[in-house]
Design a protein around this nucleic acid. Sequence first.
DNA 1: ACCTTGACGGTTC
DNA 2: GGAACCGCCAAGG
Length: 121
Amino acid sequence: MQNPSIKPQYAQIWQTVQLIPQGKVACYGQIADLAGLPGRARLVGKVLGKVPETGFRGQTVPWFRVINSQGKISFAPGSEYFEKQKQHLQEEQVVVIGARIKLKEFQWQPDLSEILFALEF
DNA sequence: ACCTTGACGGTTC
DNA sequence: GGAACCGCCAAGG
Protein backbone atom coordinates (compact mmCIF):
# COMPACT_ATOMS: atom_id res chain seq x y z
CA MET A 1 0.00 0.00 0.00
CA GLN A 2 1.07 3.53 -0.68
CA ASN A 3 2.32 5.76 2.06
CA PRO A 4 -0.96 6.78 3.72
CA SER A 5 0.45 10.18 4.64
CA ILE A 6 0.41 11.16 0.97
CA LYS A 7 -2.80 12.96 0.13
CA PRO A 8 -4.74 11.58 -2.85
CA GLN A 9 -4.58 14.82 -4.78
CA TYR A 10 -0.83 14.95 -4.43
CA ALA A 11 -0.58 11.48 -5.92
CA GLN A 12 -2.85 12.41 -8.83
CA ILE A 13 -0.82 15.46 -9.64
CA TRP A 14 2.59 13.84 -9.37
CA GLN A 15 1.39 10.96 -11.46
CA THR A 16 0.09 13.25 -14.17
CA VAL A 17 3.32 15.21 -14.29
CA GLN A 18 5.17 11.96 -14.86
CA LEU A 19 3.32 11.61 -18.17
CA ILE A 20 4.88 14.70 -19.72
CA PRO A 21 7.36 13.44 -22.30
CA GLN A 22 10.95 14.56 -22.41
CA GLY A 23 11.45 17.70 -24.48
CA LYS A 24 7.90 18.93 -23.86
CA VAL A 25 6.29 21.19 -21.28
CA ALA A 26 2.81 21.56 -19.80
CA CYS A 27 1.04 24.38 -17.93
CA TYR A 28 -0.13 24.18 -14.33
CA GLY A 29 -3.75 24.44 -15.43
CA GLN A 30 -3.29 21.75 -18.04
CA ILE A 31 -1.97 19.37 -15.42
CA ALA A 32 -4.84 20.24 -13.10
CA ASP A 33 -7.35 19.44 -15.83
CA LEU A 34 -5.70 16.17 -16.79
CA ALA A 35 -5.50 15.17 -13.15
CA GLY A 36 -9.23 15.67 -12.82
CA LEU A 37 -8.90 18.85 -10.78
CA PRO A 38 -10.16 21.55 -13.15
CA GLY A 39 -9.53 25.12 -12.05
CA ARG A 40 -6.96 24.17 -9.49
CA ALA A 41 -3.75 25.31 -11.14
CA ARG A 42 -2.52 26.89 -7.94
CA LEU A 43 -2.82 23.60 -6.17
CA VAL A 44 -0.56 22.06 -8.80
CA GLY A 45 2.12 24.65 -8.09
CA LYS A 46 1.85 24.12 -4.40
CA VAL A 47 2.02 20.36 -4.70
CA LEU A 48 4.99 20.41 -7.05
CA GLY A 49 6.88 22.18 -4.30
CA LYS A 50 6.50 19.01 -2.25
CA VAL A 51 7.71 16.50 -4.78
CA PRO A 52 9.82 13.89 -2.99
CA GLU A 53 13.48 14.01 -3.99
CA THR A 54 13.42 10.27 -4.08
CA GLY A 55 10.72 10.19 -6.75
CA PHE A 56 7.23 8.77 -6.60
CA ARG A 57 6.24 5.18 -7.27
CA GLY A 58 9.72 4.42 -8.43
CA GLN A 59 10.03 7.21 -10.98
CA THR A 60 11.30 10.74 -10.71
CA VAL A 61 8.76 13.52 -11.10
CA PRO A 62 9.82 15.97 -13.85
CA TRP A 63 8.57 19.09 -12.08
CA PHE A 64 10.70 21.25 -14.35
CA ARG A 65 8.48 20.46 -17.34
CA VAL A 66 5.66 22.48 -15.80
CA ILE A 67 5.43 26.20 -16.58
CA ASN A 68 2.66 28.78 -16.47
CA SER A 69 0.01 29.46 -19.08
CA GLN A 70 1.91 32.44 -20.39
CA GLY A 71 4.69 30.15 -21.45
CA LYS A 72 7.08 31.31 -18.78
CA ILE A 73 9.00 29.77 -15.93
CA SER A 74 7.18 30.78 -12.78
CA PHE A 75 10.16 31.19 -10.47
CA ALA A 76 11.69 34.61 -10.05
CA PRO A 77 14.27 35.17 -12.77
CA GLY A 78 17.75 34.60 -11.42
CA SER A 79 16.60 32.59 -8.41
CA GLU A 80 18.15 29.25 -7.70
CA TYR A 81 15.18 27.23 -8.88
CA PHE A 82 14.66 29.40 -11.93
CA GLU A 83 18.16 28.55 -13.12
CA LYS A 84 17.76 24.92 -12.19
CA GLN A 85 14.54 24.59 -14.17
CA LYS A 86 15.93 26.42 -17.16
CA GLN A 87 18.98 24.20 -17.21
CA HIS A 88 16.96 21.00 -17.02
CA LEU A 89 14.79 22.13 -19.92
CA GLN A 90 17.68 23.17 -22.08
CA GLU A 91 19.32 19.83 -21.46
CA GLU A 92 16.37 18.24 -23.21
CA GLN A 93 16.44 20.64 -26.15
CA VAL A 94 13.64 22.93 -25.00
CA VAL A 95 14.47 26.45 -26.12
CA VAL A 96 14.23 28.95 -23.28
CA ILE A 97 14.70 32.63 -24.05
CA GLY A 98 14.83 34.63 -20.85
CA ALA A 99 12.00 32.99 -18.95
CA ARG A 100 9.98 32.29 -22.06
CA ILE A 101 9.25 29.10 -23.94
CA LYS A 102 7.22 28.89 -27.13
CA LEU A 103 4.16 26.89 -26.19
CA LYS A 104 3.29 26.66 -29.87
CA GLU A 105 6.36 24.55 -30.30
CA PHE A 106 6.98 22.77 -27.00
CA GLN A 107 3.66 22.29 -25.29
CA TRP A 108 2.71 18.69 -24.69
CA GLN A 109 -0.47 17.73 -26.51
CA PRO A 110 -1.50 14.34 -25.18
CA ASP A 111 -3.70 12.26 -27.42
CA LEU A 112 -6.80 10.53 -26.14
CA SER A 113 -5.18 7.14 -25.72
CA GLU A 114 -2.46 8.55 -23.50
CA ILE A 115 -5.03 10.03 -21.20
CA LEU A 116 -7.15 6.93 -21.06
CA PHE A 117 -4.13 4.82 -20.31
CA ALA A 118 -3.24 7.05 -17.41
CA LEU A 119 -6.70 6.80 -15.96
CA GLU A 120 -6.79 3.01 -15.95
CA PHE A 121 -5.95 1.35 -12.69
C1' DA B 1 -12.70 28.94 13.13
C1' DC B 2 -10.40 32.85 10.69
C1' DC B 3 -6.71 34.57 7.84
C1' DT B 4 -2.85 34.30 4.83
C1' DT B 5 -0.20 32.13 1.44
C1' DG B 6 0.84 30.29 -2.97
C1' DA B 7 5.93 27.35 -8.77
C1' DC B 8 -1.92 29.92 -11.23
C1' DG B 9 -5.37 31.58 -14.90
C1' DG B 10 -8.66 34.38 -17.66
C1' DT B 11 -10.17 38.91 -18.65
C1' DT B 12 -9.55 43.51 -19.45
C1' DC B 13 -7.22 47.76 -20.35
C1' DG C 1 3.83 42.09 -24.09
C1' DG C 2 2.49 43.48 -19.42
C1' DA C 3 0.11 45.02 -15.29
C1' DA C 4 -4.06 45.15 -12.38
C1' DC C 5 -7.90 42.59 -10.71
C1' DC C 6 -10.46 38.91 -9.24
C1' DG C 7 -11.58 33.99 -8.79
C1' DC C 8 -9.85 29.73 -7.12
C1' DC C 9 -8.94 26.30 -2.93
C1' DA C 10 -5.93 23.29 0.10
C1' DA C 11 -2.57 23.94 3.83
C1' DG C 12 -0.68 25.81 7.70
C1' DG C 13 -0.44 29.11 11.29
